[in-house]
Design a protein around this nucleic acid. Structure first.
Lengths: 123, 123
DNA sequence: CGCACCTGTCAAAGATTTCTGACACATCTG
DNA sequence: CAGATGTGTCAGAAATCTTTGACAGGTGCG
């Protein structure tokens, strides 16, 4: 089947992904879940971190679309939430970042005419 | 000339890069500098942000190896520091992250035997 | 000399993130 | 029923990051 070219991510999306991945704990979580899916409590024990904390990190990762969690019912009737990594792919280059930066909606905007000024002065 | 395969970044390196890029301001800075190099004061005016603040962001970006600054002497004798983006390239996939996560030296380590436990329980 | 431009640093305030302990609810097992 | 396991949430402390205003030093120009 034909490979689809990676669509250019929106600024806000890339921002969420980068800030989500830019944390040692969350990086390890991705690593752990890449080897095999797991449920919260077990994962917490595995990487040695409190449940509430892990819960928050997983939330951040899921919000960025890097992992997906599904609530499953075990045979013994216990409810457990399994997490697994989503197949993501991002390319980071000056060009990619520049492209994404153009569509950022967060904070500060007034930099229109200032842009032109910059080019003038940068000579 | 032959293309060199992208070397696997160390965990700490990737961590610095990601946290550096995971900020709207720094993303815009990269974007601005990608179009054309510029010196601090002008860049500050261009993207509408205080010099001290921009200075700190540039420091963070330079520390991550995403931009390089060179102190130059203008014709009129004024000293100015020009910044330009460094040609970086990072690929973000579950595999890449996992690879990098293995070489993180920051905080928390005790997760050796816990790893084995995780696989057992994840059945 | 006074003004305009450049460079840089510092300390303190503000805003976010990260982390912890305690709590509530549900099910199965001894 | 008590105890172990699972889920989730909340509030407050602790650690970081971001932001601002003031300051100091440099050069060239009228």
């Amino acid at each position: 089947m034909p490979e689809v070219p990676p669509p250019a991510p929106t600024g806000d999306e890339l921002l969420k992904v980068l800030s989500a991945l830019g944390n040692p704990h969350r990086m390890r979580i991705i690593a752990a879940l890449t080897e095999n899916r797991n449920y919260v409590s077990a994962l917490a024990r595995a990487i040695g971190m409190g449940r509430p904390l892990l819960h928050m990190h997983l939330q951040r990762l899921e919000a960025a679309g890097l992992v997906v969690g599904t609530l499953e019912l075990a045979e013994d009737g216990k409810t457990m939430k399994y997490f697994e990594v989503a197949p993501f792919f991002y390319e980071l280059t000056p060009h990619t970042i520049t492209r994404a930066a153009a569509t950022i909606t967060e904070k500060a905007d007034p930099a229109e005419k200032a842009d032109r000024t910059a080019k003038e002065e940068a000579k």
